[in-house]
Amino acid sequence: MAIATESIPARDVVDDILPKLASLQSFVDHTLTNSIRQQNSPEQRRQEESLKNELEMELTIIRMNIDHLMKRYEATFSRLGVSRQVCSPSVELDQAEATAIERLRQLHQRTRRLYADT
């Protein structure tokens, strides 16, 4: 029985997925870390520390899968770097990569909702 695969345009990985990953990493490294430091409420501090730990673990897994995708399609992504064409070839995602990309999108939306005012 064949395993269903999902594909995504390589341009979407470069223009959407990688910036979301960088944005979330920056959020954890800077915004959330600073918020924890400035927190007066021990309960709020614990909640934010727990969120930070959760996000760090998730981001590690997501990054490993995105790195795997980038290595598998290194030539495709290299060609995109020199070409700004809108239409790009699609890359096939394995199940772990597809899950990681979906989880990244969910985390990005979640943190935007939680910290919309920061």
Score class of each variant (00 low, 15 high):
residue 35 S to A: 13
residue 28 V to T: 11
residue 65 N to V: 04
residue 71 K to P: 00
residue 77 F to R: 04
residue 16 D to W: 11
residue 3 I to A: 07
residue 85 Q to S: 09
residue 63 R to C: 03
residue 105 R to C: 08
residue 60 T to Q: 14
residue 101 I to H: 02
residue 45 R to W: 03
residue 36 I to A: 03
residue 57 M to F: 09
residue 86 V to F: 12
residue 21 L to T: 05
residue 41 S to A: 08
residue 63 R to Q: 13
residue 19 P to E: 13
residue 71 K to E: 06
residue 13 V to W: 04
residue 111 T to R: 10
residue 57 M to Q: 10
residue 11 R to I: 14
residue 115 Y to E: 06
residue 30 H to D: 13
residue 12 D to L: 04
residue 14 V to W: 00
residue 23 S to E: 05
residue 24 L to N: 02
residue 70 M to Q: 12
residue 21 L to D: 01
residue 61 I to Q: 07
residue 68 H to G: 13
residue 34 N to V: 01
residue 63 R to F: 10
residue 25 Q to H: 13
residue 90 S to Y: 13
residue 102 E to K: 00
residue 114 L to H: 06
residue 40 N to A: 10
residue 118 T to W: 10
residue 21 L to M: 09
residue 103 R to S: 06
residue 86 V to E: 11
residue 19 P to V: 12
residue 67 D to F: 14
residue 67 D to L: 15
residue 57 M to D: 12
residue 59 L to Y: 01
residue 66 I to G: 02
residue 35 S to N: 05
residue 101 I to W: 03
residue 50 S to V: 01
residue 2 A to G: 08
residue 56 E to Q: 14
residue 59 L to G: 04
residue 98 A to P: 01
residue 33 T to V: 07
residue 67 D to G: 07
residue 75 A to Q: 15
residue 104 L to F: 06
residue 115 Y to R: 12
residue 95 Q to K: 06
residue 37 R to E: 13
residue 32 L to Y: 06
residue 93 L to K: 00
residue 56 E to I: 05
residue 115 Y to L: 11
residue 65 N to Y: 09
residue 73 Y to D: 03
residue 7 S to V: 12
residue 52 K to A: 07
residue 100 A to I: 00
residue 8 I to H: 06
residue 32 L to I: 09
residue 105 R to F: 04
residue 86 V to C: 02
residue 115 Y to P: 07
residue 106 Q to H: 14
residue 26 S to M: 10
residue 38 Q to L: 13
residue 41 S to D: 15
residue 22 A to R: 15
residue 40 N to D: 14
residue 35 S to H: 03
residue 71 K to A: 08
residue 35 S to K: 00
residue 116 A to C: 06
residue 109 Q to I: 08
residue 56 E to C: 03
residue 56 E to P: 02
residue 64 M to L: 11
residue 39 Q to R: 15
residue 22 A to G: 13
residue 15 D to H: 05
residue 71 K to M: 03
residue 81 G to A: 05
residue 36 I to K: 02
residue 101 I to C: 01
residue 87 C to P: 00
residue 99 T to R: 08
residue 15 D to G: 05
residue 106 Q to N: 12
residue 113 R to H: 09
residue 38 Q to N: 14
residue 72 R to T: 02
residue 108 H to A: 06
residue 55 L to M: 15
residue 5 T to F: 11
residue 60 T to G: 10
residue 101 I to S: 04
residue 107 L to F: 03
residue 89 P to F: 15
residue 98 A to V: 05
residue 93 L to Q: 10
residue 70 M to D: 10
residue 75 A to K: 15
residue 114 L to F: 09
residue 107 L to S: 04
residue 24 L to D: 03
residue 43 E to P: 02
residue 32 L to T: 01
residue 112 R to K: 11
residue 15 D to T: 15
residue 28 V to S: 09
residue 112 R to D: 08
residue 117 D to C: 05
residue 44 Q to F: 03
residue 83 S to T: 12
residue 14 V to P: 01
residue 118 T to L: 14
residue 62 I to C: 07
residue 80 L to S: 05
residue 97 E to V: 02
residue 118 T to S: 06
residue 18 L to S: 07
residue 43 E to V: 14
residue 17 I to R: 07
residue 36 I to H: 01
residue 106 Q to A: 10
residue 30 H to Q: 13
residue 6 E to S: 07
residue 64 M to E: 09
residue 24 L to C: 02
residue 69 L to F: 01
residue 102 E to D: 08
